[in-house]
């Protein structure tokens, strides 16, 4: 979790990518990721083409490449797991005497690393050019279930309120000399967690009251109107369309 500053992934800008309607960007990103995942792993050149596409888009978006690379590191723990595969997978092995790697494992590892990283890179580009509010609005336009968008909205809105509350409780605890070093001192922290839960629950009730007071009747009103212009859809379609062509070509070479 990006935690306290979950809402600050957006890098403000005015590129073509920033200006695309969020629903077009989300649809394009999801389509692209599916196509990448469906590409045969043996066709290295196809993945090279995907990377080139994303590099091109990074250029258009105006996001600093270093920032994109830094955000890519969120999938490192996941990749570490993938890198273990060649050591533990069974089947045919390569190596001599004192070391050996599974060939299946190597392929699986490559598959996960390549496709996972491409997926994360796509998300980094999406979230770097779209505010959270717009992402939710885009999901709404794409007819995501209202309960889903409502829950996401609340999560985004209250993450900071609750971490703020947690921080204040921590400061108050430490101000009274609490300095936990050992496991048996965890009691106070457990109580904090419990209190925080109850407080958040009560806040939920108050928020609900405030919503009822403004005429909420159980369904979030859909406020977004008017679809995206056709040009946005066409522009957004360039990436998945090209990727689809690459993927189909890869399959034809493959079989």
């Amino acid at each position: 979790m990006a935690g306290a500053h979950a809402s600050s992934l957006l890098v403000p800008g005015d590129s073509r990518l920033h200006r695309l309607r969020p629903q077009c960007k989300i649809a394009a990103a999801v389509a692209f990721i599916f196509i990448v995942v469906a590409t045969p792993r043996e066709q290295f050149w196809a993945f090279g083409a995907y990377v080139a596409g994303l590099v091109l888009i990074t250029g258009i978006s105006g996001l600093p490449p270093r920032l994109v690379l830094r955000r890519l590191t969120v999938d490192l723990p996941f990749l570490a797991f993938a890198l273990f595969l060649p050591f533990f997978a069974g089947g045919e092995q390569v190596g001599d005497g004192w070391w050996s790697l599974s060939i299946d494992g190597l392929w699986a590892s490559w598959n996960i690393v390549a496709k996972g990283t491409l997926g994360v890179a796509t998300s980094v580009l999406l979230t770097g050019t779209t505010s959270l509010a717009d992402l939710i609005r885009g999901m709404e336009r794409l007819h995501a279930p209202a309960a889903f968008t409502a829950i996401t909205t609340f999560m985004v809105r209250y993450a900071e309120v609750i971490t703020g509350e947690m921080q204040r409780m921590k400061v108050a605890r430490e101000s009274r000399g609490h300095d936990p070093r050992w496991l048996w001192q965890i009691r106070a922290i457990a109580h904090t967690a419990g209190t925080l839960f109850v407080r958040s629950y009560e806040r939920g009730e108050r928020v609900h009251l405030a919503m009822l007071s403004r005429g909420f009747d159980g369904a979030m009103p859909r406020m977004v109107e008017g679809g995206a212009p056709r040009s946005d859809w066409t522009t957004a379609a360039i990436l998945p369309a090209t990727a689809l062509a690459v993927s189909l070509a890869a399959w034809m070479v493959h079989t």
């Binding site: 509010a133 405030a210 005429g215 009103p221 406020m223």
Partner: peptide, 21 residues
């Protein structure tokens, strides 16, 4: 507590919530 009242991602959406209802 305004944090109980304001729950949408932007001020504009929040102010629109009541009239949209």
């Amino acid at each position: 507590d305004p944090d109980d009242q304001l729950f949408m991602p932007t001020v504009r959406d929040d102010v629109a919530f009541g009239p949209a209802n």
